[in-house]
Design a protein around this nucleic acid. Sequence first.
DNA 1: ATTTAATAGTTGTATGTACAAACAATAAAC
DNA 2: GTTTATTGTTTGTACATACAACTATTAAAT
Lengths: 142, 142
Amino acid sequence: MLESYIKECLYFTANRLSRVVTKMAEDEFAVSGLAPTYAFLMMAVYDKEGISQKELSEILHLQPSTVTRLIEKLVQKKLITSKSEGRRSLIFCTEKGKALKSLIYECWDNLRARYNEILGQEQGDLLTLNLYQVSDQLERKE
Amino acid sequence: MLESYIKECLYFTANRLSRVVTKMAEDEFAVSGLAPTYAFLMMAVYDKEGISQKELSEILHLQPSTVTRLIEKLVQKKLITSKSEGRRSLIFCTEKGKALKSLIYECWDNLRARYNEILGQEQGDLLTLNLYQVSDQLERKE
DNA sequence: ATTTAATAGTTGTATGTACAAACAATAAAC
DNA sequence: GTTTATTGTTTGTACATACAACTATTAAAT
């Protein structure tokens, strides 16, 4: 079968899933005016005012350079401010940023509702947990 | 917990896994001089000489425009040729492309071996299958 | 105290992927 | 047989993410 080695490759299936879910997420977060990753960064700031870029990079599992770029854009949009303190730079939420908070959480709920409706709450949760653990396993062994 | 909504979000876990596995794959395919997606496209051509872009797009689950771009690069590298036949354009492998065949398959084997060593053959296979099916479910319901 | 190493962040550059709009070729409808 | 719709591919543009190299700050070692 032509497609067999596609179906049987984690590289491919993982990327495909990522594309499918990303599309859904972009869709749900669209009303907030933010792409999903930006929204998650905002959530991390809501949770900890004055969080550092390093911490963001760890929580979001993104490279520091990527976080720098995300922050740039969010500062441009005046949703956060960045205050450098020694070699670190700490991130704070603006009023405009705070105003988005409930909308962002709503989008997040909608996203989960949407895929859980298709997968079932239990399968959705299990899958999510599973992916997290597998990523951990794979990352540790590098 | 700060990270809870990250761990609990399929968007995030799926993307994280995708990044982790992509890195592994890039690593394993590096000796072939190709990024993994290009290598998979080559495999599809090995399997069916004269395959059309539409078919490639379906097999690889990528947008047509993306396939156009991939092909552009592979033609540049003289690994394939593209012959337009009516409105379709059909893809053939060059000698140089054929010469890569066994190396590419080797890389693919190494990739699977590498993550199976960490996850266990069974968990690896199950996960891969699972991801494929979940993507199908999610895509059908759009 | 000076030198050296480690840590945090940034900048230039590259890549994979996509969307929307355009174009070209075929098929359907009238 | 023309017009209209559909299908396959391409082009312009945009975005998320990363790596490698760099700067700046703090900590360790001598």
